[in-house]
Design a protein around this nucleic acid. Sequence first.
DNA 1: CTGGATCCCCCGAGATACTG
DNA 2: CAGTATCTCGGGGGATCCAG
Lengths: 123, 123
Amino acid sequence: MVTKQFEGLPEDADLRRADSLAREIFSDIANKWALLIIEALSERTLRFNELRTEVQGISHKMLTQNLRMLERNGLVEREVYPTVPPRVEYTLTEPGQGLRATVDAMCDWTQRYLRDIEAARRR
Amino acid sequence: MVTKQFEGLPEDADLRRADSLAREIFSDIANKWALLIIEALSERTLRFNELRTEVQGISHKMLTQNLRMLERNGLVEREVYPTVPPRVEYTLTEPGQGLRATVDAMCDWTQRYLRDIEAARRR
DNA sequence: CTGGATCCCCCGAGATACTG
DNA sequence: CAGTATCTCGGGGGATCCAG
């Protein structure tokens, strides 16, 4: 997806590294749960269990795993309030907000072509 | 992701069906391989083995499976030329083109925030 | 070349239990 | 409430072979 720009150029370790990184990131975020979590956080900051409710169908484990991944990539920020019981809030960072736009687009697309897809399936 | 619009309304079987369908579709397309295939087809029609090359890392099986899925949902069109050896071409349909735009946006996003993400990871 | 079918292994992911 | 750790199982997905 990215490589094309570099085709034919002399080997360049940096570009190759960037490309492999891009693929890695793409693989990270191009998955159902990650995108749904971002969609859920697009409106407002949410706590762990709120997310669990919003992103319906996700398991405890998947939610934590994906949140860690998103955090690692700097797409969501995790804020811990040292109260009792603990309170943890997840917020979209600026890069996360940027991705949010594309996720929204995907959701819009789904809505827009729902009928067409339904029709296509009947064939 | 879609349900929100309907919250609080009296139960409506049609809306529920549409929502479950939307989730199904979203799960179908929100996966790495499907999106990479669409990205590959965004420039031009491709044959099976060309796709296999473009979408590097994908296995024979995954490619066929995803193509069948995309075809079933009417995102790609499959044209068979009854020559020998057989020649099969895959093309993005109009809905497919629509999705392509959002995939492009995702790729752009990846490029744009590459450095930020790299930095975030080092922490 | 395209693409089904089969075998098989590994790990993704759910369930459960336990800490702070 | 939030999160980690362990166990376990099913099926995702690779490798391979066959067919048109």
